[in-house]
């Protein structure tokens, strides 16, 4: 009789452990999705900045032609991002297009010293820098959550529970040196 109770006890404990691991995996997966949505929200903030950029450069013909092409490419890349589906390749593309636009802006503005010195342009560049920093930080948070999630499905006995019940796959972290450079916060020690 005691043996049966011991077996029941072990089964109950095992069940609780499995449920806890199952829920932890789900929580970590949700945290990755939330962090991803956060990255996309930050990326889409660029859509608010682009019209200001167009306003600033519209009086400079040569400037306008090259920059507007890059702006269109960036808009198209931003449209391709889906906050509901983790797709680091598309994020990489949007970040590359942002990099190209900023590079083009920096090179062309050298020919227009009065534009470079204008308060509106300076303000716009500060806004873009700030936005890039937020994207960099959001990507860092996403990568941390991905690391937590991957650890959560790979360590034993979580790997067993995942293989039997959750069936989640490992997620790739986002690696983009330009985006990481955008985030400038460095602790002092």
């Amino acid at each position: 009789m005691t043996g049966i109770w011991v077996a029941i006890g072990i089964a109950v404990v095992l069940m609780i452990v499995i449920i806890a691991i199952y829920n932890a995996i789900i929580n970590r997966a949700n945290a990755v999705e939330r962090a991803w949505a956060n990255v996309i929200t930050q990326e889409r903030q660029k859509n608010k900045i682009i019209p200001h950029l167009e306003d600033v450069v519209k009086d400079y013909k040569e400037f306008e032609q090259g920059t507007l092409t890059k702006v269109t490419e960036l808009r198209s890349a931003l449209q391709g991002l889906d906050s509901g589906k983790v797709d680091t390749a598309k994020l990489e593309q949007a970040e590359a297009k942002t990099g190209e636009l900023l590079k083009s802006l920096n090179v062309t503005v050298e020919n227009y010293p009065e534009l470079k010195a204008s308060e509106t342009y300076q303000k716009l560049m500060r806004e873009i820098t700030d936005q890039q920093e937020n994207i960099g930080a959001a990507i860092r948070i996403f990568n941390q959550n991905v690391e937590d999630f991957n650890n959560g499905i790979e360590v034993f006995p979580n790997s067993l529970v995942n293989a039997m019940l959750n069936r989640k796959e490992k997620i790739k972290t986002f690696s983009d040196s330009q985006a990481e450079e955008g985030f400038e916060y460095k602790p002092n020690i």
Partner: peptide
């Protein structure tokens, strides 16, 4: 709590 502020607090908790 913008992402930059969140990460700054994470860093502060290391110090």
């Amino acid at each position: 709590m913008k992402p930059t502020v969140v990460v700054a607090f994470e860093e502060l908790s290391n110090v």
